[in-house]
Nucleic acid binder design. Structure first.
Lengths: 219, 219
DNA sequence: TCAAATTTTTAGACTAACCTAAAAATAAAT
DNA sequence: ATTTATTTTTAGGTTAGTCTAAAAATTTGA
């Protein structure tokens, strides 16, 4: 049974690996986990001895199949807990992260599988991120940033990149939510801000906002 | 914020305090937590410095109001989680303990209060033990051991003393469950076994069984 | 009451996970 | 290509929580 800390390292490496093909650097992991590079070196050695990562000194880390499966399972648990909190316990999507960080380390296969069934086998967490299945497979769906959508095009909001409370509460305030259709009305060349329509509302969003919303093109 | 270990010590002291008025001995705590007396001494010193227990060297420990409230809250969480597992996640009452031991250390007031509401503010856990309220008050209801019930008397099963899987599965097999009416038909003076009736079934139970079932007298 | 048995505490050591500071290796840049 | 900057590792130290073994206090009992 892995410790909470070991699980957090595997999860961090997993998330960093999504963007890069190369080995994950010590510093990148340290940054992700808000810890020091020396601590990372220690832990990575341990994970390597346990056969969960491939580690070549000075050349970064990669997850083994075994490590990847464990990481995916931690993420599966995190995201299923988030769904439970939002759907059953009246949590807002900006309130779930901290608690899910704790809950993801609860060890009980029965618990997580029953919860999955109880929730109707959800495919995505409250932020639109895919939930890995029992075997650790993730269904990465294709998604674009809202900022890349052309004028007069329509798109459906399917996720968020930033999951900070500030950002999510901004979206709540503007009534931007998963599943909502967004029409791009104008783009301002100077600052890349956009005029968009959601339902009956029209308003302007900054580039920073537009680069943190994932959408699916609507034909 | 207390550590898991500190919370477990407070919980152990709380449980031991129910039976005794005196200070709880180092050895008793060590036995309860399956640890060594020297470890207990160390931890008890720390809890004392934090104002959670009163500790006089060589003379045992008592919870302060603050410590008692925290302990009751851990127990509240443990028992609410057990209800969730049984009522929503198809756990049997002999399967909940291990997972609840983990879940009781999750820190989130909102989570536990929402869960309480979601479950309809249950008063008892799946073993019949009372669930402390938000302020740490426990409603100790009066209960007798089945072994003390006289011949030809009726009683309702309201709890169990032993919560081991073996015992609980025995009760399942015999269809003894919370809320069931039990009639004592005969008592054997030699070994204190009893012949009882539950519904249409009549069978004999040993003294060991009878001293682990809590009942409420029926007039 | 005072010696023996028991309980409790102290002293010192261990592990996991972290840290700082210095050394070593790699990468960047003139 | 060799100096400079950056990254990574090593060395040694800290804290929480545990342990063993020995010392101290309390309790038991003849």
């Amino acid at each position: 049974m892995l410790s909470k800390s070991e699980e957090n390292y595997l999860k961090a490496i997993f998330h960093l690996s999504v963007k890069t093909e190369k080995g994950i650097s010590t510093n990148a992991i340290a940054q992700q986990l808000d810890t020091k590079a020396s601590s990372v070196t220690d832990m990575v050695k341990k994970l390597s001895e346990k056969g969960l990562v491939l580690y070549v000194k000075y050349h970064g880390v990669t997850l083994t199949d075994k490590g990847e499966k464990i990481a995916a399972n931690v993420i599966r648990k995190h995201r299923l807990w988030e769904v439970l909190l939002v759907q059953k316990f009246n949590f807002n999507w900006d309130e779930v992260h901290e608690v899910a960080e704790q809950l993801e380390h609860i060890h009980s296969k029965k618990l997580i599988n029953e919860m999955d069934a109880f929730l109707g086998f959800p495919k995505h967490d409250p932020h639109g991120d895919p939930i890995p299945d029992k075997d650790g497979n993730i269904n990465f769906l294709e998604k674009s940033l809202l900022s890349t959508i052309g004028v007069n095009m329509k798109a459906v909001c399917i996720g968020v990149k930033d999951t900070s409370s500030d950002f999510l509460r901004y979206l709540d305030k503007q009534e931007i939510a998963l599943g909502k259709e967004i029409t791009v009305l104008e783009k301002e060349a100077f600052d890349n801000s956009m005029l968009i329509r959601i339902g009956a509302n029209e308003f302007t969003i900054s580039q920073q906002i537009a680069t943190n919303i994932y959408v699916k093109n609507k034909e």
